[in-house]
Amino acid sequence: MKLIHKYGAPKRFYELAGTLTPWFAALTTLLFVSGLYLGLYWAPPDYQQGNAYRIMFVHVPNAWMSMMAYVVMAVFAAAGYIWNIRLADILAKVTAPLGASFTLTALVTGSLWGKPMWGTYWVWDARLTSELVLFFLYVGYMALQASIDDPRRAAHASAILAIVGVVNVPIIHYSVYWWHTLHQPASLSLTGQPKIYITMLIPLIIMSLGFMFFYLTMLCVRARSEILWRERRADWVRKLIESRS
């Protein structure tokens, strides 16, 4: 709680994000380079899919991040709605386009993967359809934010949509178990053994961490820009501009 009070002020978070951004960016680069090398050159071809499966190292992390980012956005939105925390509203707002990008990338790469596997780019499969709904939820959240001029009213209105839309996240995850779908079940589980070779699992985990740190990097960058815009009339922003001019 003390940490929240300490860095909950936009000015404090602006400073913290500025310190963390280079470290997050460096980790992102390191993880992407090593993960892509291991995924494209070290991991062997799949015995059924050949080399076509390698798109998994981009598709799966983006699919995971699309759901994680939405939950994070909803939590921030709820915190801003309930406790009127300005920073939470900012973090929810800047997460939305990042989550939408992850979701769109997951949909596109999934379609490219589906063509050689299923013979078509798109089917109205439960997993694909619920992921598409997630993309529309992101778009709806951003559209609602943009349609209201007052930041507080925009945050409160869009928070309701974000919170209600959380119900779609477990639907995406369990869709392959609840309905008969073309999409394969998860290869990783918290309770069971991985259904994937270790030589494929390692680059998948590294790429997933890379996309997570990419999200953190862009979150800090976008949050700093949004904070400067919202606090543009504050004394600390004026002094910051003067010190750099």
Rank of each mutant, 00 (worst) to 15 (best):
151 P>K: 08
212 M>D: 03
180 H>Y: 05
190 L>A: 14
191 T>D: 12
179 W>C: 07
204 L>E: 14
146 A>R: 15
176 V>S: 05
171 I>V: 13
216 L>G: 03
162 A>C: 03
217 T>K: 07
167 V>R: 07
195 K>H: 14
201 L>N: 08
143 A>Y: 10
216 L>F: 08
179 W>L: 14
184 Q>C: 00
151 P>R: 10
207 M>G: 06
170 P>T: 01
154 A>L: 05
190 L>H: 11
215 Y>T: 04
201 L>R: 09
183 H>K: 07
214 F>N: 07
202 I>P: 10
166 V>G: 07
151 P>L: 02
175 S>W: 03
154 A>I: 00
173 H>T: 00
188 L>K: 07
188 L>E: 10
170 P>F: 02
212 M>C: 12
168 N>A: 13
215 Y>C: 02
150 D>S: 10
178 W>C: 05
213 F>I: 02
213 F>D: 06
157 A>M: 11
154 A>Q: 07
218 M>P: 02
148 I>E: 13
168 N>Y: 06
162 A>W: 03
144 L>T: 13
183 H>T: 05
164 V>Y: 12
194 P>K: 11
173 H>R: 07
153 R>M: 09
186 A>E: 14
187 S>P: 00
164 V>G: 11
199 T>I: 00
212 M>P: 00
161 L>R: 03
167 V>F: 12
159 A>P: 06
209 L>A: 14
168 N>E: 13
200 M>F: 01
209 L>K: 01
